[in-house]
Structures are given as C-alpha cells and as structure tokens.
Simulated assay, not measured.
Amino acid sequence: MVTQQFVAAPARAALFLVMTVNEGSEEVVRDVFADLSSITRSVSFRVPGDQLNCVLGLGAGLWDRMFDLPRPRGLHPFVPLDGPRHSAPSTPGDLLLHVRAHHMDVCFELSRQVMDRLRGHAVVVDETHGFKYFDERDLLGFVDGTENPEGDAAPAAVLIADEDPDYAGGSYVIVQKYRHDLEAWGALPVEEQERAIGRSKLEDVEMPDAVKPINSHVHLNTVVDADGVQRQILRDNMPFGELGTAEFGTYFIGYAADPGVIEQMLRNMFLGSPPGNTDRILDFSTAHTGTLFFTPALDFLDDVPGPRAGASADDAPADTAPVAAAPGHSAPSDAKATDLGIGGLRAATH
C-alpha cells in the first residue's frame, strides 16, 4: 500500500486550495485524481531538490456524488461550533489541495497544472499561500510545532488501519483559516502571551502543569483517552499575511486517523473544558473557515473507483454528523507499515 505523503519533510512554502466542484463535473475530477501522481512527478522532476509534495482530500458531499461506496467512517461535513464567546464556522469545500515544497514557485506550478484541468469545473473558495517564518514561529511570535508525533508514532496517529480496512492507508484532514489581531496581541506583556499559549516565548518550553493556565492553548489541546493515553495528530500549520489589507494569520491543517481527536480539541477550544473555559488564544485569533476532508491512499487515486450507478439522492448517506462528534475510530499503535516516502516531520503546532 502506498499512502499520500501526509508526513513530510519540513517545507518553507505551502499553497492551500479549497474548491467546490460543479454539478456534472465529477468525471473531470475523477480523471484528475487518476493523473495527480503523474502531474506531481512531472513538476517535481524539474526541481528534484525542492521536495515537492501534494496531498489531495475530498469532502463528504463530493464523495456521495462520485462513488457508489460507503463513506469512510470518519467522513462527514465539518461540524460548526458556537460557544459562549467564539465560533468555528463550517464552510464549503469539495476538494483540498495541500501543496508543499522549499519554494513557492514549485507549489504554484503544480497547483496551476491541476487548476488548468479543473478550470470551468471547480471554483476556488479559499486560496492561501503560506510561508515559513524564521525558526518555525507563527506570526504571534511563538514556535508553532513541538508536539507533533515522531518516528513510528507519526503513521500510527495519521493513518487509517484495521478500524476501517477498506480505506486503510488514508487519513482525515481538517483545515481552518485563523486571522490574528496582531495589534491587540502585541499590546499584551510577554508574560501574558506565554500564559495564553502555555509555553515560554523565547525558549519554547512548556509550562509545568502546576502553573499552566487551564484556558491556555496547550492545556486545551491536550486530549487524553479513557486509558490515560494522549491522543496525537499531525499538524502542518503555516503563517500567511497580506500587508496591504493587514490580514495576518495561521492556516491550521491537522491530519489524523480519527478526526474525532481534532474535533475534541476544537470543542475544548471553542465550547470550553469545562464548559465556558475557552481557549485564551481565541480572544486574538478568529476562525473564518472550517472543512473536513478524507485523504485516500495513492492506490485509491491511481485506480479511482468508477462512478455511481444510477443512484438517487435518497441513497446518499446522511449529510450531517452528530453535534457531539465523539471520537470513535482511534488509530491503533500497531498500525500497518506502509510506504510513506517521507524525509522527516514538519513541526507545526504549539
């Protein structure tokens, strides 16, 4: 089994494209799926040292239109969250392209090649160009990445295995675009910024539990299962910004074998844990998008299943997930070994 390159070498540039697919264009999209590996190889061959990598995901609605197959167990529309002070919206998205490399020109070229095939058939609803910022920091000034799983723990956290064998080697990804109020954030003393994050700003050292605020970003993003084992996800966040519009932020992208782990983190942040104890960072960072995708194994894309055979709208699975969206598909620690084709990990979470 060959997986998409969810776990990848550190990138200095990334391009994120979220698209909706026009009704009637499903077969064009199917052809692009089948050719994506070839397109990526063609661009990468010209710049072999740039470590170009493209991951493709598809949303629940597009899955129902394209395939006469049951949905992957964790695939459903992103569940919006409306908390006492902050909200996480659910926004449209049928396709995700997550393109990474050492330089933006390579990301742009691959994305352009794909979009040339999809033009007139898909609409870009969000395009974000991300960049590495100094020593893996976000625009808030903190190192963004430290707790990503490493070694064998990375595929165990990311890859679907025996819990959903028909889709083994795939993963799930949630994306959100956060915009920062840098002026308000910069007015905070460094000590208050550190309490909001739960880490020291210069040294990137996590605060001891005894002094770490319970509304800190680190505390609320620590998810432990019933056996006391911390659940992990793989983040590949990137800063983005436009000087003319003064729009600055972080593009959150998290991969997991079980999207319920990410959903639990988001409930902690936006609804509070305990209820009302929301993430302090949300006072300065606002989520403007939210979409969940299934990212299949390369075997699935290279030999993409055929179209739905005369299915009616009544045959499609329910289009909403339970609001609780409780985790239920944990990745076992003995996940099957697969060909990851990786050169390292990107550290990209607080």
Rank of each mutant, 00 (worst) to 15 (best):
M1F: 09
Q4I: 00
F6E: 04
V7D: 03
V7C: 13
G24L: 04
E27Q: 04
F33P: 00
D35Q: 14
F45V: 01
V47W: 03
P48F: 00
D50G: 11
N53Q: 15
N53A: 13
G57S: 14
F67Y: 05
L69S: 04
P72H: 13
G74W: 04
D82S: 15
P92G: 05
L96Y: 01
H103E: 09
H103P: 03
R112K: 15
D116M: 11
D116G: 07
R117K: 12
H121N: 15
V124F: 01
V124D: 02
T128M: 06
D135S: 14
E136L: 07
G145T: 01
E147D: 14
E150R: 01
G151C: 04
A157W: 06
L159W: 01
L159Q: 05
P165S: 09
D166Q: 07
G169S: 13
G170K: 04
R179P: 05
L182M: 11
D204E: 09
P213M: 14
L220R: 11
L220I: 06
V223H: 08
D225N: 15
Q230E: 15
R231H: 12
L234V: 15
D236V: 15
N237F: 13
T245M: 02
G249M: 03
T250K: 07
Y251P: 06
G254L: 14
P259V: 10
G260N: 08
V261G: 11
Q264T: 15
L266A: 03
N268C: 12
F270Q: 05
P274S: 02
T291D: 07
T291C: 09
L292P: 10
L292A: 04
D302K: 05
D303P: 02
P305D: 08
G310S: 12
A311W: 04
A316S: 13
A316P: 08
P322G: 09
P322N: 05
A326Y: 01
K336S: 12
A337K: 12
A337V: 11
L340G: 10
L340T: 09
L345E: 15
H350W: 12
